[in-house]
Each structure stands twice: as structure tokens, then as C-alpha cells.
């Protein structure tokens, strides 16, 4: 391997910078525009940031409004915006995988319950043909603007084909 002294010096400088950086912050500083542990829990610290899918505030969620039918079952749902905030909090606490899951989840908030259950069942082994999985992928993308979940189905379709988990493979 041919590496010049100059290159070694450069690398050394970078290593030192990285070490000093780590020393300073302990952990990576989160983007100031993003939420982090200091904003948590939202229910206590930022109730004003949380709304229901029909635009109600947390203050509106009370017994009186339930009894008056002003609050409906669909109000007890999380919105993509709230999932995004929780995703930022998770990521900034060092858990990017949770943020990824919450991103997928935020895409699914608009899929009706019954359809979501059908989609899950279709993804179970030996339930669907490759074509059927790709159709759901298209539906997720086109009807529900859910590109990440759409890719999830495409990826599954490929993998199920190779691993023989499609309809009729058992």
C-alpha cells in the first residue's frame, strides 16, 4: 500500500479532530430544529404541538366532548407529524432504527384499519403471489403516498421469490 507521509499527516489530523470532537460533546449534537430528550414527553412539555387527525387539540380530548360526540374514535389516532416528532426524539437519543420504523408508520396512518390488516396478512408466508405483493406496493405508493412501505413490499416480493415463501411454494 503506497501512502505518503503527507497522507498520514492528513489522516492523523482527522483522527485527532474526531477524538476532540467526541471529547467536546460526549455525543453528537442534535440539529437545533429537531426535537430531543429535553422536549419529552410531549404530553407534558409540548401539548400544543400535538393535534388529532381531525385537528383537535389535547385540551379538546375530554369526557364532556366524548359524551357530546364531539370527540370520535378517529380522534384517538396519532398523526404523521407527531410520529415525526417522536422519531426525532428517538434518533437524537441514539436510536435511528426506531425513527425508521416511525417513518414507515407515519406512511400507514392513512390506510384504513381493515385494509391495513389485509395488507399485513398478504405479507405472511404463502399468502400472496409475487404479482399480488407488487400490486399492494403500487397501491401503497399511488393511493396512500407511502413510498417506503411500497418498497418494503417490493423487497419482500423479491426475497419471497428467492426463499420460496410465495403462494403455492409450500
Amino acid at each position: 500500500m503506497n501512502i505518503t507521509d503527507k497522507e498520514v499527516k492528513e489522516i492523523t489530523a482527522r483522527v485527532i479532530a474526531a477524538l476532540e470532537d467526541r471529547e467536546d460533546s460526549g455525543e453528537k449534537q442534535s440539529d437545533k430544529n429537531e426535537l430531543d430528550a429535553t422536549d419529552y414527553p410531549l404530553y407534558k412539555k409540548h401539548p400544543e404541538k400535538v393535534v388529532t387527525p381531525t385537528g383537535k387539540t389535547l385540551e379538546d380530548i375530554n369526557l364532556e366532548n366524548v359524551l357530546k360526540q364531539k370527540v370520535q374514535p378517529q380522534d384517538f389516532r396519532i398523526t404523521p407529524q407527531t410520529l415525526k416528532m417522536q422519531g426525532e426524539i428517538a434518533k437524537n437519543a441514539g436510536r435511528p432504527a426506531i425513527q425508521n420504523n416511525l417513518q414507515r408508520a407515519s406512511e400507514l396512518t392513512n390506510v384504513p384499519d381493515a385494509r391495513l390488516l389485509e395488507m399485513y396478512n398478504a405479507l405472511r408466508p404463502y399468502r400472496s403471489s409475487k404479482q399480488e405483493l407488487l400490486e399492494i406496493a403500487a397501491e401503497l405508493n399511488d393511493k396512500y403516498q407511502a413510498p417506503i412501505c411500497s418498497n418494503w413490499f417490493k423487497e419482500a416480493a423479491e426475497n419471497y421469490e428467492q426463499a420460496h415463501k410465495l403462494k403455492g411454494d409450500n
Partner: peptide, 24 residues
């Protein structure tokens, strides 16, 4: 990291690492 970072030491470590690392 409480002790002061020693440039020579880091330099030496980097050289050692490079020697022990192949291209891929």
C-alpha cells in the same frame, strides 16, 4: 478522554493501522 492527545502517538497508531490494513 482526559489526558492531552499526543500527536506523535496518534501518528504512530495511524501508521500501524495502515500497515495492517489491506486495500479492501
Amino acid at each position: 478522554m482526559s489526558q492531552k492527545i499526543n500527536k506523535q502517538l496518534v501518528d504512530q497508531i495511524v501508521r500501524n493501522v495502515i500497515e495492517n490494513t489491506s486495500e479492501t
